[in-house]
Nucleic acid binder design. Structure first.
Lengths: 211, 211, 211, 211
DNA sequence: GCATAAACGAGACGGTACGTCAGGTCTTTAA
DNA sequence: TTAAAGACCTGACGTACCGTCTCGTTTATGC
């Protein structure tokens, strides 16, 4: 998401001019966090306010991100922790992935502005695409591989589209952690409950008797 | 969501002065739709621009909604069609509800800015609450009643929390229609596929043999 | 110098919308004078400072003048008092004109920033032309007519170009009042001395004896 | 006007480190001239632009002049040619001095920005004083000496203040060459005409008959 | 030679002001 | 009273320069 043009990877020659200050960058991130903690809404998160709180010139911010949204997306994407290591049985890995998402949702509940920033992403097609590429795609890719493994191992039904399988398994926890306010994520047994219910099916006795 | 104080229901006396122009209201809605169609981002949707496009004074807008967000939430909530009639078997009603959400997702795919407006709601706690009350709560209520009926009729397992059952059934289609870009909603058989898969369970042959 | 586009003279129809505030305009002028009195240099005279001191929004200034220079030229040109009434003998009128310029120079000595603003005019060709048309041309015209009258009445030599006559008569006082710091304008007899010396000639006894 | 602190005269020891680049200095001057020739206004003459055009770092400029005004005053003062040699008769010297000022005015007509820079000097008291000391004072001194000689030789009236005599003789050409746009300096006979008119007096037949 | 020292180009730094834009309010005249 | 128009104050926007400060490099002197 960084828009710094000098960050091009092929720029291997000796950098000229004074290098960017890492301290300034940290101060900017700290200021955003601090302003969020102070309960600022997204509209109150102005570049000018951030610059003042960070003790930094506005140009120092614009040199790194082309606008406020880019800064927010960058910050949000940095908050995403790495995915859990894909070791163990299929069911265990599936539960671990859902537990990871539950934890993430719990973390975001405390700083709702970050969640707001995440939604802000949807305001602009470019930011949406950037966020998609940086955050969503890698996670969907991990989920898809896990599901493919499950099908190959016979742990998942093979007669369904992989995408549908993915949504059926991931959609519920995603809804709880992103769309709603996160108050339903407290139960640590949630992943196990969800996974087992999905695997076994939701049909009740009447349905089973019938079919 | 209307914030017009004169719309109070106890204002029964004969209204004095010039009455509000219905044409102005329609012009405002039309202008917003037109600006959205023109591909404007959410930030480009300014009150000033809407007023100019509608040929309306800014005060005429502020007389009806207290600010831009209120206008957007009002417009979004008007786009929600009524829920489908709850008639038929449990499975049929469940499929109908998911089909309704699929249709809504398809409609919103064409006007993504409205979807963006929906996300914009999350920027402010008050708007979030208002949208929750106006849109989310009635739909969750309908879903909850449907699920309760399913459990009572033995069509759904009775050993699971109703909320979890709700998320397992609704979460996947919600994810597809709101969080993602809607390109996966084209298949009209999607509701049937999803519902049957959920009811029967996702476990594959290896899992079934084991347990 | 006003750059207000709505000030077009043919705009005779009933003006719509809120009219410009005369109070705001006066507050702007007062703020400029006050900041000058506080000893501000020209570079310290910022639009932002003027707006703050006047308790006025920046847009209110930009609605009236397109930039700082236009505002200054407008202010300077308003400070020019009307020319003295052209009554009396030729010599008396000439002395009156020079006395008028001496007074103007004395006034400007106390507010040197206004003098600086006058020079600022020369920074831009457009402003230079505007100032020329608004201030210089009318005064040169008055001087030219006076000189023409003097020639016609036989009070001035008729063998010289009118422009040269004008510069010979006006240049000295102009130099003292504009180019230099005005410390040489205190003597109230200066106009009489100058005029009589110019009319009689500066040649000394040796020159007269020779020619 | 050079503000280089290391140029202090008591710094007699052998300078250490890399010496200042004469090429850089010339490039700076050339860049200023070039930017002026491109029709830039004074406000467009930025240090940053000069540095870029000269292919020079900003610090290289600030090492030599403390700010933009100092650079401009330095450049302007370098453009002043030496005064003409004071040889010959009084009238001849006077005409030579006025001819010198006419030539200077003609030269400046073509590069009005330099003239503007000259006026810019008036924006700041310190620069005004500096320019006064570097440029104005020597010339006024030369004029004063010439006038004093004229009085002593009987070529000029002795009953007038020397300062007034100076302004009467110099003011007209100064007005034409600095205040106005220089279009009235083309006639090479101008100095002779002016000097003779001033010496002989401007009174016409009616005035002479009367007194 | 080889350190010391200063100037060099580049460009980032904290600031200030620019001129624009929008927000939400207020003040006109007209309907 | 509402409407359209548009001016009002406020405050953020993103840009341009200011004058200062690192960077790594270059070019001189002095040990």
């Amino acid at each position: 998401m960084k828009t710094d043009p000098t960050a091009a990877p092929d720029c291997t020659g000796p950098r000229r001019g004074r290098p960017r200050s890492e301290a300034a960058e940290q101060a900017i991130f700290a200021a955003v966090e601090e302003l969020m903690a102070a309960g600022a809404g997204l509209a109150e998160l102005t570049i000018e306010g951030i610059a003042t709180a960070a003790g930094v010139g506005k140009a120092t911010i614009y040199r790194r991100w082309s606008n406020k949204e880019a800064l927010l997306v960058d910050m949000v994407s940095r908050l995403e922790e790495p995915l859990p290591a894909p070791t163990g049985t299929f069911r265990g890995d599936l539960i671990a992935m859902i537990e990871y998402m539950r934890q993430r949702g719990l973390a975001k509940r405390s700083r709702w502005v970050l969640k707001a920033a995440l939604f802000q992403v949807h305001s602009s097609p470019e930011l949406h695409a950037a966020y998609r590429e940086r955050v969503i795609v890698p996670r969907r890719q991990a989920a898809r591989e896990l599901i493919r493994r499950g099908v190959a191992e016979g742990e998942l039904r093979g007669d369904l589209d992989e995408e549908i399988l993915g949504d059926l398994l991931i959609g519920p926890i995603l809804t709880r952690s992103i769309l709603w306010d996160g108050s339903d994520l407290d139960d640590p047994r949630l992943p196990v409950t969800m996974v087992d219910a999905l695997l076994q099916g939701l049909a009740g006795p009447a349905a089973k008797a019938r079919g």
